[in-house]
Design a binder for these strands. Structure first.
Length: 426
RNA sequence: GGAGAGGUGGCCGAGCGGCUGAAGGCAGCUGCCUGCUAAGCAGUUGAGGGGUGAAUAACUCCUCCCCGGGUUCGAAUCCCGGCCUCUCCGCCA
């Protein structure tokens, strides 16, 4: 959520943002409500001031043995009036925040203005597209032939959009998780956390998934808990409602979780294979930083995620997303897209974003600057480091061999018990 | 699931109808003092919002003692509902 004062003082910038992002929200309505609210507030405050003075006078008179009945009756009437005005203010407040929660963050100057993914800017590439002296297969054919992923069993168990890994497929998944976590914890300085996979509604509001995306979330109605769509939610909320110490910043967390997404409205897209599934594994990187450092921190976050792909020897590109494509809460966002030879296209495996103070304001995460003084909102960032399912797609398709087996990249072998190839699993 | 206890400022912790935005301690800040230890002395320090204002200066007002209602002229303090935490019992991977 943006600062209401900021919206009040910069309505044009907010409207420009909405336009650049191809979104809409009733900014003028918000400003009108805000004005109305302040008028009422002034009235209520005057009355409260009067009431406070009278109450203490009454207190004194009573202690002197008098009973100012007249005054008490008068105050009773004023108290009622105050209640009425406060109620109106409450209603306006609710309307105001309803609108404010739907206003997205202001993009950074370095974000290209654009209306669709065509306007995203590729900032760099790493590696090269692998070449084959045979027709490369898609990951589901490879996985099926090797018996390492059983989509049929998964859909019998849970319906479409799920995968069941078996044998070396399951081990590969586990190996990737450990491999990634080890790099981030030992080399990049992140603290590993293993958070709950279900969270309260207020957490989802805090990170910005709600109220906009309730449709996309799995919800356990009896307890009003949500299955997390990303570890960003529980990890960012670790410090919800806290004032952090300046010397503790920056704070880096990484964590593995499963992620759950309903993918409502995307039926018919990517129905086959691992590219779009309702449950997938992901390593997430989350940072809490001082405002003045957040854009440097974004760059290093991207590099931390990139290292995973580099060590796995997978060709990828980094894309600076345009205004239409960056997420609601972010000011700037880089996607990492890995090359999938079987599909002959790039797949998004990481989205690294700076949220500035947007999530921090919603979630109440502040810090006290060294020089003392007022607590300020921290900046939060996060990025996948990286998403597993699509990485498995790229891995299988990149390292497939003519005989159907798959070579295991060097860096991963220690995690696969020294194995250098995936052979057929029975 | 059953029975209790509790949620107060950055932290700990008193208060249990008006004198409390809140004692005391710790931490922080500012002076002073001291050439010995993360010592001593004094002062100071909560958050959000409104108004006046060029002001992130100053002044002033309102609100906030988990959240939401209620009682009362007046509530951190009493009553009701909710959320959360802890202890004991039960159940259980």
């Amino acid at each position: 959520m943006l600062d209401l004062k900021f919206i009040r003082e910069n309505p044009e910038e907010v409207k420009k943002t909405l336009k650049d992002r191809g979104m809409d929200a009733d900014v003028d309505g918000l400003l009108k409500l805000d004005k109305e609210r302040r008028n009422l507030l002034r009235k209520a405050e005057d009355l409260k001031h009067k009431k406070n003075i009278a109450s203490s006078q009454i207190g004194k008179l009573i202690s002197q043995g008098e009973e100012p009945k007249h005054k008490m009756a008068e105050m009773k009437a004023i108290a009622q009036k105050i209640k009425d005005i406060d109620k109106q203010v409450g209603e306006i407040d609710a309307k105001t925040t309803r609108i404010a929660l739907l206003i997205p963050n202001i993009p950074h100057d370095s974000v290209p203005v654009g209306s669709d993914p065509e306007d995203n800017i590729e900032t760099r590439r790493w590696g090269e597209r692998p070449t084959f002296d045979f027709q490369p297969l898609s990951h589901w054919d490879i996985a099926d032939a090797l018996g390492i992923i059983d989509f049929r069993a998964a859909s019998k168990i849970s319906g479409r959009g799920f995968a069941l890994y078996r044998g070396l497929g399951a081990k590969l998944e586990r190996a990737l998780i450990n491999f990634m976590l080890d790099i981030h914890t030992t080399k990049h300085g992140y603290t590993e956390v293993f958070p709950p996979f279900m969270v309260k509604r207020e957490c989802m509001v805090g990170t910005g998934q709600l109220p906009r995306l309730e449709e996309d979330m799995y919800r356990c109605e009896a307890d009003d808990l949500f299955l997390i769509p990303t570890a960003e939610v529980p990890i960012t909320n670790i410090h919800r409602g806290e004032i952090l110490r300046a010397e503790d910043l920056p704070i880096y967390y990484c964590g593995y979780t499963a992620c759950f997404r309903r993918e409502a409205g995307s039926y018919g897209k990517e129905t086959k294979g691992l590219v779009r599934v309702h449950q997938f594994d992901k390593i997430e990187l989350v940072k809490f930083v001082k405002p003045e450092t957040s854009y440097e921190e974004l760059e290093s976050l991207v590099r931390d995620a990139e290292e995973i792909l580099q060590q796995l020897g997978l060709h990828y590109r980094v894309v600076n997303l345009c205004t239409a494509d960056i997420s609601f809460a972010s000011t700037k966002c880089y996607d990492l897209e890995v090359w999938a030879p079987g599909k002959e296209r790039y797949l998004e495996v990481s989205s690294c974003s700076n949220f500035s103070d947007f999530q921090a304001r919603r979630a109440g995460i502040r810090y006290r600057p060294e020089k003392g003084g007022k607590a300020e909102y921290v900046h939060t960032l996060n990025g996948s480091g990286i998403a597993l399912a699509r990485t498995v797609v790229a891995l299988l398709e990149t390292y497939q061999e003519k005989d159907g087996r798959v070579t295991i990249p060097e860096a991963l072998r220690p995690y696969m018990g020294g194995l250098d190839r995936i052979d057929r699993t029975r």
